[in-house]
Nucleic acid binder design. Structure first.
Length: 364
DNA sequence: GAAGAAGGCGGAATCGATAA
DNA sequence: TTATCGATTCCGCCTTCTTC
């Protein structure tokens, strides 16, 4: 297995939009000499406020999602106008960010942080700007593409797709594959399965899955998938993007390797697990229906009645029941009973070697 | 109107620039 | 080279919005 390529951290919401990384390139391109790292952020910040103020007057983006609001930009620009000097504003900036007492201070703090993430995306993640803060070959190539200020053109989509693959191939493609998997098995969320795949199959131990990191980062990946229109109606990667993968030896190799692992994951246990999840849903639904319908037996329902509606063999039902009890007992209170009101000679099921015929489930 | 999802936001942890 | 300190990055809480 190739060492997986992935971005270890993506911040929602500021990394959700790709376009700001182009704005930085435009900004760097306007400078006549290279700018030290200690100055680039505050200089870019000023440029960002000024530019967005101008652009928001012409047109508002389809969705802000990580872009500063027009309200915030308006008031910050007004504030700067009152100071009437860029130099003075920039020298005040560190104090504003440190103290942030007023509403405007907080707006500045928040938009400044946004600017910081845009710079980081362009520089550290996509390599559009060199460590010396000059445009890289990629950065220059991006500026060659003319497009709308907010929207991503088809050529830009191709460009960004390539940058994403270079920086985040394994987790980005994995995310696409799991979106499809979720659709295939009609799952609400695939985050737990995806975590398992990343951990056990890709051997990426970076994420501590008790935290919400991966799901947060996936929100960012998801908005990239959407803004670049990567998936078709059936949630397969579109042909033009597959062609990009196929035309690059490295991507092609990684893709096929990843597909193999993914298939393996799906076939090893996943399908079985999904079958169990489906049965569990059915079992609980029937239990609850019976609870309303049947004569009250202190919440106990005869297992044979549930089994009958589930249309499942006695052998499979027995197997399911054991798995249900063992995996669910930490989530719910599950009680069994072997006593019935009238004589019931039907066979018993066995839980931990005890014969049972009725079940009672209480949510914790 | 409750539950769940989405999004905004504050601030702590960490990183890295600077100066000695 | 290393210590310091402020800037940057990351985490996840909490409010707001959406859906049932």
């Amino acid at each position: 297995m190739t060492e997986p390529v992935y971005i270890a951290s993506l911040h929602r919401p500021f990394n959700q939009q790709l376009k700001p990384s182009k704005w930085i390139c435009t900004f760097v391109d306007t400078l006549d000499k290279s700018i030290p790292s200690s100055q680039i952020l505050s200089e870019f910040y000023y440029y960002l406020i000024k530019t967005l103020n101008k652009e928001y007057q012409k047109e508002l983006p389809d969705a802000f999602n990580g872009l500063p609001s027009d309200v915030a930009i308006n008031s910050i620009w007004e504030y700067i106008q009152n100071i009437n000097s860029k130099k003075e504003f920039l020298s005040e900036l560190p104090n504003i960010i440190l103290d942030r007492k007023t509403v405007i201070d907080k707006q500045i703090y928040s938009t400044y942080k946004a600017a910081s993430y845009y710079l980081n995306l362009a520089k550290d993640k996509f390599n559009l700007i060199s460590p010396k803060n000059t445009l890289t070959v990629n950065g220059k190539a991006l500026l060659e593409i003319k497009s709308n200020f907010f929207r991503i053109s088809q050529r830009e989509a191709t460009f960004y797709f390539e940058r994403i693959l270079e920086a985040d191939f394994h987790l980005f493609i994995t995310h696409c594959l799991f979106i499809k998997l979720g659709l295939k098995y009609n799952l609400k969320s695939v985050i737990a399965e995806q975590s398992e795949f990343i951990n056990d199959y890709l051997k990426i131990k970076h994420f501590n899955f008790t935290s919400s990191s991966l799901s947060n980062y996936n929100i960012v990946r998801n908005s990239w998938v959407e803004s670049l229109n990567v998936l078709d109606a059936k949630f397969n990667i579109r042909r033009n993007y597959i062609e990009i993968i196929n035309s690059n030896v490295k991507f092609y190799e990684w893709y096929n390797e990843l597909l193999l692992l993914f298939k393996k994951f799906e076939n090893e246990g996943f399908k079985e697990k999904m079958a169990f999840v489906k049965r569990k849903g059915m079992f609980l639904k029937i239990y609850k229906q019976r609870l309303k319908k049947d004569k009250n037996d202190l919440g106990f329902i005869n297992l044979h009645n549930i089994k009958g509606e589930m249309r499942i063999s006695a052998e499979n039902f027995q197997k399911f029941l054991v798995e249900f009890y063992e995996s669910e007992k930490k989530n719910r209170n599950i009680y069994f009973s072997n006593t019935v009101n009238s004589i019931d000679t039907r066979e018993r099921f066995y839980i931990r070697n005890r014969p049972v015929i009725k079940i009672k489930i209480k949510d914790k």
